[in-house]
Design a protein around this nucleic acid. Structure first.
Lengths: 125, 125
DNA sequence: TTCCTTAGTTCCGAATATATGAACTATGGA
DNA sequence: TCCATAGTTCATATATTCGGAACTAAGGAA
């Protein structure tokens, strides 16, 4: 199995990031990875949407997030550990990820009860 | 010809915005509309990319920007005037559009000489 | 070792989305 | 009325995405 590709941060594009996050399932996965302190394996997300996501589709979503430079995946034993590349992205495009996560939060609050804090890291500054 | 559809601001989604702006041509069009004080007609953008964009494709891109809630288009005589819905979007998702435009600016500066001002109209406000 | 289980990836065909030439519509002007 | 201009719509070729089936890689048990 060929090793996983991770783009250099300088090759990361805004369009690529926006494309990766323009899918509801992927943006939900990404938001959860960003929000959690520790790495997440892929199978944690089989039930992130209404209906179960087939694992081939999930694998495809993770590949797109990886190729966009949003996450870093490495095998840890039999699982894959997925961590966000937030700080790298933020160094290159300051505030971009935070603004998107905040917008998602606004959107989900509009749909549900107005949970005040949901375990998200505070926006820098 | 059926009248153009513009979503209510409350129906605008983050995913829709990100999808609309995940295409290099569309995001370039949108950035230019945001940057300009006055409305822009569609044909201004026939040459926004390396090669000329067919007008049916351009029409399609404008439709996607419209459907995402990013722009408002209205016929003025024989042309279409396209204006950004920036302030509405910003009221709903504060800072989102600004962060994306800033990221694009960082990206384009990285690709070219670091000219401080590049003839773009100053951001409003 | 060999076999089993778990976690993901890859392959490939089906479903969906995008791009574009051609035809059409709407408006303004000669 | 006829023409030119600016966009839209239609039809279809191309490209992406989805998802089942087969495959790969690692760990554990015996």
């Amino acid at each position: 199995m060929r090793p996983l590709f991770h783009p250099s941060i300088k090759d990361v594009t805004v369009e690529g990031i926006l494309h990766a996050l323009s899918d509801p399932v992927r943006v939900a996965i990404y938001a959860q990875i960003v929000a959690s302190a520790c790495s997440q394996n892929c199978s944690n997300f089989l039930k992130i949407s209404e209906k179960d996501i087939p694992k081939s589709t999930l694998s495809h979503h993770f590949k797109i997030l990886r190729d966009a430079g949003l996450i870093r995946s490495e095998r840890r034993g039999v699982e894959m550990q997925n961590a966000s590349r937030c700080s790298e992205i933020d160094a290159r495009f300051p505030g971009l990820i935070a603004a998107i996560i905040r917008a998602l939060d606004v959107q989900s609050k509009g749909r549900r009860r107005p949970a005040k804090a949901r375990g998200l890291p505070a926006p820098r500054a």
